[in-house]
């Protein structure tokens, strides 16, 4: 049970809070404290909109320990509207509908359970944006 490991990431997992580099303006997710583009300190929090597009995706048929119950599930690289790519699962979407470029938005879902008495870990997944919002 590694509670602190997940607890300390709550602002990222539940709210997609990253950082912005004050020098070059790069928006960073995950937060990393040093801007990879200009190597300057970047501690300023930045709230991402949670909107983006599918950059790539894959449906998994073989899961690591703790994820067997979800098989098959679809993971994706999502390009956020503000720039960064993020790795996450797609949810609430038909397999046949998914394609590269599909507009998606962040939702909060269960990421995994660690047994009957263990942690339930929540975090971001992405679903297809409703047509009017896209």
């Amino acid at each position: 049970m590694d509670i602190p490991r997940h607890w300390r990431l709550q602002r990222q997992r539940y709210a997609l809070v990253g950082e912005v580099c004050k020098k070059c303006g790069a928006r960073l997710f995950p937060p990393r404290d040093v801007c990879p583009q200009c190597s300057q300190p970047a501690y300023e929090p930045f709230q991402f909109s949670g909107k983006g597009k599918v950059y790539s995706y894959s449906t998994l048929y073989q899961a690591p320990a703790g994820y067997e119950q979800f098989v098959p599930y679809t993971v994706a690289l999502v390009q956020l509207d503000e720039g960064p790519l993020v790795t996450a699962q797609l949810t609430d979407v038909d397999q046949d509908e998914i394609q590269i470029g599909m507009p998606v938005e962040m939702v909060t879902r269960k990421l995994r359970e660690e047994g009957e008495d263990g942690l339930i870990i929540y975090g971001y997944k992405f679903r297809k944006q409703p047509a009017e919002a896209a």
Binding site: S58, L60, P64, A65, V75, V86, T87, Q89
Partner: peptide, 29 residues
């Protein structure tokens, strides 16, 4: 499943593996 978990340790635990993406999955992307 344990071997798959182990191989996923080559990836970013907090921002890749937690989403259930395996090492194969990353290459599939």
């Amino acid at each position: 499943a344990e071997t798959t978990t182990g191989l996923a340790m080559a990836a970013d635990a907090d921002y890749e593996s937690i989403h259930g993406v395996t090492f194969v999955g990353i290459n599939a992307l």
